[in-house]
């Protein structure tokens, strides 16, 4: 735990140090997306093919994020930072902490992510932007995970994301659509370990996001994330959200959402709110 916090501190310090040496990204406002809850560039729940910063092919950028979810019986916070290089490679680090209110159960994990843009362009191609990404997750509280019946404390998610924006979409507004296919064993993002008694194999899960730019600064949309269900003791459901993003400048983006997380950690259907702040350097 101390080790992981130290690692994140080092990473953030490095981010701040580097940010002084970075040129402000040359992409158009809103085109970098935000940071999803596992630290990768994307929507709120879903990683996209876009990279986290405003860097073009001649630039580099850094972002940091803090997200907070509050549903009926638990809360989760996530924070981290990401670098992206020449609109090609994104490296990210995130930490998530889950707290159940009644049982005082706490779960947490570290996530190291990497994403490579393969082909295409979000806006300027008829073909969508395609990226391949990975999230290496390391869950803590091993005794709890063992009790739950998780197969492993560590896991690797691999995803392929396709994202496309139309400048002149419905109602002559900008529209962004994302489809992601994820290979994963993670139980509840990995906070409850990886694999279990029902299945210990990789499964392909489908995730999608849609966002409509009301103008250059406000985006509304919805997301869906399919989830595995590896533990017979703890049912896991697919996730949904409806979001509103405010992007006043390229330096900051504020995301709020209504989330539906289904059954989680033995708790009945969980719904509530999500807030996330992303800053770009």
């Amino acid at each position: 735990m101390i080790k992981s916090n130290l690692r994140i501190t080092v990473f953030l310090t490095l981010a701040l140090f580097l940010s002084g040496h970075l040129v402000a990204g040359g992409k158009l406002i809103g085109t970098s997306g935000v940071t999803q809850m596992e630290g990768s560039g994307g929507g709120g729940m879903v990683p996209w093919a876009t990279l986290s910063g405003y860097d073009t092919r001649d630039e580099q950028s850094a972002t940091s994020f803090f997200s907070y979810v509050q549903v009926d019986d638990f809360s989760m916070k996530a924070y981290g930072a990401a670098f992206s290089f020449y609109d090609r490679l994104e490296l990210s680090l995130a930490h998530q902490v889950f707290n159940a209110q009644d049982s005082q159960l706490q779960l947490s994990q570290n996530i190291v992510g990497a994403k490579v843009k393969l082909i295409g362009d979000l806006i300027y191609n008829s073909f969508p932007q395609l990226s391949l990404g990975a999230q290496y997750k390391s869950a803590q509280h091993h005794d709890v995970l063992e009790t739950l019946g998780a197969g492993n404390n560590k896991g690797l998610d691999i995803y392929l994301a396709a994202t496309k924006a139309w400048l002149d979409g419905p109602f002559h507004r900008n529209l962004v659509v994302n489809l992601t296919l994820r290979l994963t064993k993670a139980n509840q993002l990995g906070l409850q370990g990886f694999g279990g008694d029902k299945s210990n194999n990789y499964r392909a899960e489908f995730e999608t996001s849609l966002g409509l730019f009301l103008n250059r600064h406000w985006v509304v949309g919805a997301e869906y994330r399919q989830k595995p269900n590896n533990l017979s003791s703890l049912k896991e459901d697919d996730w949904y959200n409806i979001f509103l993003v405010y992007i006043p400048t390229k330096d900051i983006a504020i995301t709020s959402a209504f989330v539906e997380l289904g059954r989680l950690a033995g708790l009945s259907r969980q719904t509530g709110g999500y807030i996330s702040i992303q800053t770009s350097f």
Partner: peptide
């Protein structure tokens, strides 16, 4: 409380249809 599921799915489907519609704009 399955409202979000009920709301978000039609939004996603509806927008997908709209994308197809606006591709034919000349």
């Amino acid at each position: 409380m399955q409202t979000l599921k009920v709301i978000s799915l039609p939004i996603i489907l509806g927008m997908t249809l709209l994308i197809n519609a606006c591709q034919s704009v000349t």
